[in-house]
Each structure stands twice: as C-alpha cells, then as structure tokens.
Write a protein that binds this DNA or RNA. Structure first.
Length: 857
RNA sequence: GGGCGCUUAGCUCAGUUGGUUAGAGCGCAGCCUUCACACGGCUGAGGUCAGAGGUUCGAGUCCUCUAGCGCCCACCA
C-alpha cells in the first residue's frame, strides 16, 4: 500500500464516543434555535402536530418517552422534507392528579370556606394522618408551586430525549392563555346552546365528592351477593320475588320492573306491591331493559343503584327517593312525607333509624339483618362477583346522586361524530373501531363540571332573588374581552363586591371544568386561537397519542372542533401502544413495576432509547427491552466509526458527486441506496417509522460489512485515479444519505457525525433523494449482491478453516452466470483486496458458485 | 353479550398487492486482537408460520371455522 499522507480532512475526533452528546447538542440546538417554528409562513408549508399535554403528577413514566419519540421521529422527517414543523408541547397541570399530589406532598386539604391567608406557608413536615385545612387560594398557590417544579423535571426528560420541540410555544392547561381559551370556548358553546346546566342524576365519587363523566369510568370486578326479597302484593294474596345486590337501597325503591312480554308478570303490570321493612307501595311496571333471565325476572328500581335505574326512572317517570348523600353516607328519611309514603311510618322509621349517617357497607349489613328478622329475605344471600363502576382514579364504587352540572350535548350529535371518526385517517387503521364503539355506546351527555379547586373556573355567576334563592336559569356572563376571569373574585358587570352571595346580589359558579374540557382545546391553546398563527396550523396535520385516551382526549377534541369549527381538529391520528414491563405485564403503581425513563437514558443514551421506541410499530404494545436499547447504542457507535472511516478517506473540500461514480459495483450500491431512500420516504409519509428504521439499519450494516470492505483498498488510493475517485464519491454520497436517513431516529449521533463535515445542523438538511445519487436504478444485472456472496463465501471458508480473515487465498474460482461474469470480473480487484486473494478467475456457469483455496499457513 | 388485535426460530419481532429455498436482531456455538469500529467483526446451527378445512397452478399472506392470549365496548337486578 502506498504510503499516502492522508490529511485529516475534516475535524474527526481521534476517539469518537456517544457519551455526552445529549447535553452538548441540546445546548447547541437551544442556542441556534434549530427547532424554532417560523410564524411567517403559509398553511401549505406547515406540518403541525397536536401533542398530548402530559399530566404533571410528579411521576416520570417510560410511557411518556415512547409515544413522544415516535412523534418526534415523524416531526424530524417532515422538517427535513422542508416543512415548517409546528411541534408544541404543553403541560396538563390542572385537575385531580395535581390536587392529589399537592395534598400528599404538603399534607394539606382544601377547605373553600376558609379565607385566603396571605402569610400562609406550607407545613414543613407533612402529616398524612392530620392534613392541614387551607383556603382555596392558598391551595391553588401550592398547586402552582409544585407543578412548576414537576414541569421542570418533565422538561428535562423531554430535552434529554431529543424532542425537537419549539420550547417558546410551551403552555400549561391552567395558564392564563389556556384559561381564556377554555372560557371563551365554553361561552361560545353556551351561546350556541351546545352546553346546558341541569340537575340530573350524576355519577358521583363519594371520596373525591365530585361528579365524573362516562369517559372516566372503569369497571372493576367486585364481590357481591344476590339477596332474594319478597314484596307482598297489594289487594291480593301472594308476593313477587326480586333479586337484588343492593338491599341497602330498599327504602329508595320506587317500582318493581319486569320485561313486558314475560308471562310470569304480564298479569301483574299495573298492580302494586309493598316494599319489605319500609312498607312503601310501589307499582309493578314493564320495561324492555328488564331481563327475564336475570334473577327472578323482576328487579327493583331504586333512585339510584346503577345507570339502568336512571334510565328506568327517566323513561317511566318514576318519583325520586334519595338515600345517599354526597359523602356516601345515608341521609335522614322521613316516612310520613310524600317522598317516603310508608303505610307504617313508625315501623319504617325504626328500621331506618340505624342507617342514617352510615356508609353503604354498614347500611347493607343492617338492612340484611332486619330483612332476615322480618322474614322477607328468602334463603341466604348467594355470593357472586360482578363488575361495578368506579371512577378510574377512585377507591370506592360510584354512587348516583342528583346534582347540578354543566353538560355538553354529545348524544344529539352522535351521527355527525361517527362521521368525523370515519373521516379521520387512523394509524393504525383498526383504531377507528375504538372510537366508533365508544361513540355508539354513549349514554349521557358529557358532564364537564367538577367540584374541585385547581382548574379553569366556569366564567359564570347567577343572580340571587329577593328571597335569597339563586336563579340558575339566567346566568350572568362576562364579555369575551374580560377573559379569563375568576367568578369567585371577579364581579359580574353592574354588581358590587358587597352583593356577593346576598339577596338581590349574585353568586359565582363554584365548580371548575373537567380537565378534558381544557385539554380537548389543545389545538386552540397551542395554536393561539384568535391570532394569525391559528389559521396557519389548524386543523393540525397530525394528532399524536396513546390508545387508552381515544375515548377521552381524542373524542373530546373531535367534539369541540366539530361544534366550534365544523371540522376535524386534525387529519391524521398516530396512535401508540402500551408500554409493558419487561415481562409483558401492564405497568402500574400498585404492582410496583413502573419503569422511570431517565436511568435508561443515562445508561444507554438517548439515541439508544429512541431506537427502541422507534422499533415499536404504531398501535403495537411494546415491552421495555434493554437488549434492544443496547443494539441502538451499538448502531450509534457504528455510525461514529463508519463516519470516521469514510471522512478519513476524503480530502478536505474535495468536490465529489454522482458523476464521479463510474464503476459498476459503486453504481449498484447507489442504485440500491436510491431504492432505500424511496422506500423510507414512502414509509415515513405513512407514519411507518419502524419500517424506515428496519430497512435503513439493514442497508447500513451491509454497507459497512460488505461495500466498505470491498472498496476500502480503492478508497485508500490503490488502483487507478478513476477507480479511487469512484470509491470515494460513493462513500461520500452514501455516508451523507445514511446520516440523514438516521437523523430523525438518532438525532444526537447523526448531528455529531454531520458536524464533522458540515457547519449547519443535519436536522435542517434536506431529506435525501435518489436524484442526488445520479438517479441510478437497480436492475437485474446488478452485481452488488453476487459480489457480496463471493465475499461471504471467502469468509465462510476462512471461518470454517479457523484462520484469520486476513489469511491469504491462493486461488479463487468464481463460476457465475453470463450476466454477472463480466461485472464480477470488473470487481475482481476489489474482491482480491478484500479477501487477500492471490489468483482470481471467473468462469461462466448456470449458477453462482465459489471455490476457495487457502494458501498454506 | 358485541367488537378489535395477536399467535412465524429459545426470546422480541419483520414479512407491503398470494410467486423460487420463510427473514432480522438478541441469545447460543465456533472463529478472528484485520491499518473505522473489542462499546468490535466474521461464520454457523435453529422454524411442518396456533389447529382444521377451503379458494388457487401456487397460501405465512385470501376465505370459513376452532383454540389460546390481550384489549375495547356493553342496560352487570
């Protein structure tokens, strides 16, 4: 080998490493504003992404990195395609999880009746057993304080991961702008009659003392028991037997129901029966929802035991007998009144006496015992397990209580909302079924009132009449230019502060909005609804989220956009799967198998973690796999070393282009690279980032293992000037394209190697095209593959002879079909150099065959 | 009860509109301290594609049924 002085043409480190790239490049990207969105733009040039504002509850979760990484990969691709990418990020900091965390972190509890204490400071040592009651204003301050800390930690995680977010667009859902957007959207809905205030039976969590919406429910399998009760008929002999799992609600029984065509009951409809213990006469009614196969075929309707009771109560216009209060305890009941018209008030009262103030569990035991004594409990309770509705964050079964809430009309828009779901492009497509079944299954309008403190208040006051009664029918509204307002401190127009909560004065709506009522406006918040920016980013190109929040966030966003703009909020929805623990079990705090992402990033590097995330296909549940991260790290290291080698072969400032690539082997490689680029581009456009990674990785390893080895001698300057130039140009072009193809997936290492020979960021470089490679096409006579096979045959021979790969091959005979023979001959020098072959000969044959004769050791 | 998805090498998964001999990585085994890379490289073994039936010249791929696993939804007395 000629002793060519090889100038170090570019600034390639002597010992490149992937360690420390995150901090260095994150800082540089900040300085340079690499990911800044250019607001001076047109809608056509923008690619806008609607990202989920993560719930800031203190816990960093590996699930966060998964879905966002997949989105970031897509964002980076479109940025390189020349789009002005709008990739904002906000924090969902209002709502129950934040309040919960603040209560536990500081050992406090909000008591809205207390006055604001301007000198308040949080307890030094939180005492779980004795929480300090504090004013709403002080509580909100603590929420703001803690979310600020948590948001910094989250931001650190997202930056460490290489999220190409424009941080100047950062927002919080409880921030001033978001509050204004929320309130404006609410007032618009009110003006259009899309939202209404109503006292209605509401799903109620007795611990949070808060209404919940249908979307926040989950079923949990609970032990229970059938109790068979005997209801004596009125005016004739006999009794009706009823099975119930909720005997404690007996006093609230308002009817007994059976299926209209159930022959056992057809003669009884229109008659009435007496409830055991309480002696209240209730009608026997017919309704199709009564299932003849369940229990005795007859059920007791209570107000309210479950959601079916609500349906029956509404459709059959039954009276209301309220037993359970908002704290989950039994209320007083007067059996001499219209509400509880007992035939034996004294007896009824004595049976009820022990129930008042008790919780459901205690009351059940007492009622069952009384029934047993009375003899109206038939047989013993039969134990079963059955699903019971819970608030997803709750600990006790939901009760149904009547309360005043704001509801968004969704039921009457069901068909339009279903059509929106069909209009949306889902990735993967089958996720559309989740949306459809959810919308088809809606049974109540969307309740957006929450009886909590840290959130967006309803911008509403109500007038109070001379008798001190609040008139909920004619709310007082602020003008839009006053928003955001807090009705508990701001005043309705025309009123004085002294009139608050006084006769002829006004009263503030005490509630805040459901967290989804605000986060469903993420396109409006991030896109600065009301400014020119909004027209340039809305509707968004892409929504990014996990499948578990299709029924909440995605559905709610579609509702709000449909009502406000008569359009979809985004064209495409990229739905990610679950993260499972290494044993493929769902992660949960209770199981203690939650994995936090920062140690993974520190151990393996961000590019390695991103490699793992990008290998998970859309919608596919993926287990945490550190092995996969190690492979990602190895890939990044290989990129460093391959780049170092190639750049070491090039002269500084040397102008190489596709025209310099003259050898068939080199042209074939570029043609195959063109195929890769086309496939990667098409896959990215369909959000199939995982396929891009798979194909690019496969090409890259073949490039390193085979092409680089074959062309190495020429690259070092052996061979003619033209041959050397062809090899160097091929290496130059291929390295450039491969670095850019990997850039969306491994942004740190690719930026590092790109910086060795470029002044500007790879993430703003153009996405590679086949044109820049001379537009070469792969063809049937391509020899790259057969030449690789020859090279592999040589290696196989050496490997099985257990000699070094540098061992000399004395004689290499290649039998090749005619179409390859010439071309393989043309690459003979490469093969000789790569395989250390002394004598090489090519003969024509039907099939490719290689005979390797090693030189004696 | 309704629906969706999955089932391919020991493990994790690819397999585009049906087309020679089913792919990758990990793990395993063997070899190589080769001048980009030991934070490495090379080579190899390993699969009746969950089961049954059907369509077709041809099925991992399309159709039907069955089984197992996971998930979503449901008015769960």
């Amino acid at each position: 080998m000629p002793d060519l002085p090889t100038p170090t043409p570019y600034s390639v480190p002597e010992k490149p490493t992937v360690d420390g790239l995150e901090a260095a490049w994150t800082r540089r990207w900040d300085q340079d504003g690499t990911y800044r969105f250019d607001p001076e733009t047109t809608r056509e040039d923008v690619f806008s992404i609607d990202t989920p504002p993560p719930t800031v509850s203190g816990e960093l979760h590996i699930g966060h990195v998964f879905s966002y990484t997949q989105g970031d990969v897509v964002a980076r691709f479109w940025r390189m395609r020349g789009k002005n990418v709008f990739y904002p990020l906000g924090w969902d900091d209002n709502g129950v999880p934040t309040e919960r965390r603040v209560e536990n972190y500081y050992g406090v509890r909000c008591d809205p009746s207390l006055p604001f204490d301007p000198h308040f400071s949080a307890p030094e040592q939180p005492d779980d057993k004795k929480k300090v009651s504090i004013a709403r204003g002080n509580f909100v301050e603590l929420c703001e304080e803690l979310t600020r800390v948590d948001e910094e930690a989250f931001k650190h995680l997202f930056r460490s991961l290489g999220q190409s977010v424009d941080w100047s667009t950062e927002y919080t859902t409880v921030g001033r702008f978001a509050r204004g957007v929320s309130q404006r959207a609410f007032l618009n809905m009110l003006a259009r009659d899309d939202v209404y205030l109503r006292v209605a039976p509401t799903l109620w969590d007795v611990d949070f003392k808060m209404a919940v919406s249908q979307a926040e429910l989950e079923d949990r399998e609970q032990p229970s028991a059938y109790h068979r009760l005997s209801f004596a008929r009125v005016g004739s002999e006999g009794a009706i037997e009823v099975d119930t799992t909720r005997p404690e609600l007996l006093a609230s029984c308002v009817a007994v129901v059976a299926h209209p065509e159930d022959p056992r009951f057809t003669d009884l409809f229109g008659t009435s029966v007496l409830t055991p213990l309480f002696g209240i006469e209730v009608p026997v009614v017919a309704h199709e929802l009564a299932d003849p196969d369940k229990g005795t075929g007859a059920a007791m309707i209570c107000t309210f035991g479950d959601t079916t009771d609500v349906t029956w109560w509404r459709e059959l216009a039954l009276p209301t007998r309220t037993l359970i209060g908002r704290d989950g305890r039994f209320l007083p009941a007067d059996f001499t009144t219209e509400e509880f018209p007992s035939r034996a008030p004294g007896l009824a009262a004595s049976h009820y006496a022990g129930l008042e103030g008790r919780n459901v569990k205690q009351a059940r035991a007492a009622v069952v015992e009384a029934l047993r004594v009375e003899g109206s409990l038939l047989g013993e309770p039969r134990e079963i397990t059955h699903p019971v509705k819970f608030y997803e964050k709750g600990e006790r079964p939901l009760e149904i209580v009547a309360s005043r809430q704001w509801f968004v009309r969704t039921l009457e828009h069901r068909e339009e909302l279903l059509a929106r779901g069909e209009e949306l492009n889902w990735v993967p497509d089958f996720m559309r079924h989740r949306y459809r079944t959810w919308v088809e299954g809606l049974n109540t309008d969307w309740n957006i009132s929450r009886q909590r403190y840290f959130g967006v208040p309803f911008p509403v006051w109500y007038p109070i009449d001379a008798e001190g009664e609040i008139d909920f029918g004619s709310p007082l509204l602020p003008s839009l230019d006053r928003l955001p307002i807090d009705p508990s401190s701001d005043l309705p127009e025309g009123y004085q502060a002294t009139q608050r909560d006084r006769p002829l004065g006004f009263s503030a709506d005490p509630d805040i909005m459901d967290t989804w009522a605000t986060s469903s406006l993420s396109p409006q918040i991030a896109g600065r609804w009301g400014t020119e920016l909004f027209e340039r980013v809305f509707p968004m190109d892409l929504r990014l989220q996990a499948h578990e929040i299709i029924r909440t966030w995605l559905f709610a966003t579609v509702v709000r956009s449909h009502l406000e703009f008569d359009s979809l909020p985004f064209e495409n929805a990229l739905i990610s799967g679950w993260i499972l623990d290494p044993n493929r079990k769902k992660m949960s705090k209770s199981k203690g198998n939650v994995v936090t992402p920062l140690p993974l990033i520190e151990n393996h590097g961000a590019d390695a973690v991103r490699y793992w995330a990008a290998s998970g296909r859309p919608g596919t549940d993926t287990a945490i796999d550190e092995g996969q991260m190690k492979i990602g790290r190895r890939l990044a290291i290989k990129m460093l070393n391959a780049s170092k080698f190639v750049l070491g072969r090039l002269d500084a400032g040397e102008e190489l282009n596709a025209g310099d690539v003259t050898l068939p082997l080199d042209q074939d490689l570029l043609a195959l690279l063109g195929d890769l680029i086309d496939e990667a581009t098409a896959a990215f456009e369909k959000y199939d980032y995982a396929r891009v990674l798979e194909r690019a990785e496969s090409f890259f390893w073949s490039f390193c293992d085979n092409y680089v080895e074959l062309a190495k001698a020429r690259a070092y300057g052996e061979g003619s000037e033209e041959e050397t130039r062809s090899a160097r140009a091929t290496l130059f072009l291929t390295l450039s394209a491969l670095q850019r193809i990997f850039a969306p997936i491994q942004p740190f290492v690719t930026e590092e190697v790109w910086s060795w020979w470029h002044d500007s960021s790879i993430h703003l470089a153009p996405w590679p095209t086949r044109d820049e490679l001379g537009n070469l096409r792969s063809h049937p006579g391509s020899i790259f593959q057969p030449v690789c096979e020859v090279l592999e045959a040589i290696r196989r021979e050496k490997s099985s002879a257990k000699v070094s790969q540098r061992a000399e091959v004395a004689d290499l005979v290649i039998a090749a079909p005619q179409e390859y023979a010439d071309a393989v001959s043309a690459s003979a020098a490469d093969l000789q150099a790569a395989g250390n072959v002394t004598l090489i000969s090519v003969v024509v044959a039907n099939e490719l065959a290689v005979s390797v004769t090693l030189a004696p050791a």
